[in-house]
């Protein structure tokens, strides 16, 4: 095959260092009192890291198949339905 979805090695090392820095950042951010925003900051950093892994290590960015991108977006969409509708239910219940 002539085409390769692999990015050059330099990109991999850059992403790897960014992921390590993200881990250090999330540990540091947890020690700062941000009130309710601690969870939001932690989840934002985690999502950025997950996105970097998916785009560059799992090669979604260079994927020639649009079908794969569709599967990924559908997965995230259904996961959000699961979480959001469950929260809408439990968040508005008058139990205990």
């Amino acid at each position: 095959m002539s085409e390769h979805s692999s990015s050059p090695l330099k990109t991999y090392v850059t992403i790897w260092l960014t992921l390590l820095a993200g881990t250090a950042l999330t540990v540091y951010a947890a020690t700062v009192d941000l009130g309710n925003f601690n969870a939001a900051v932690a989840l934002t950093i985690a999502s950025c890291k997950a996105l970097l892994v998916a785009l560059f290590f799992m090669h979604i960015r260079g994927a020639s198949e649009r079908l794969i991108k569709l599967v990924v977006i559908t997965t995230v969409f259904f996961l959000l339905i699961l979480l959001a509708l469950s929260m809408a239910d439990y968040g508005t219940r008058a139990w205990s």
């Binding site: 881990t23 999330t26 947890a30 601690n38 932690a42 989840l43 950093i45 985690a46 890291k49 997950a50």
Partner: peptide, 9 residues
Amino acid sequence: IYLFPLLYL
């Protein structure tokens, strides 16, 4: 990557 902040932090 998600388990770490959710459980430890």
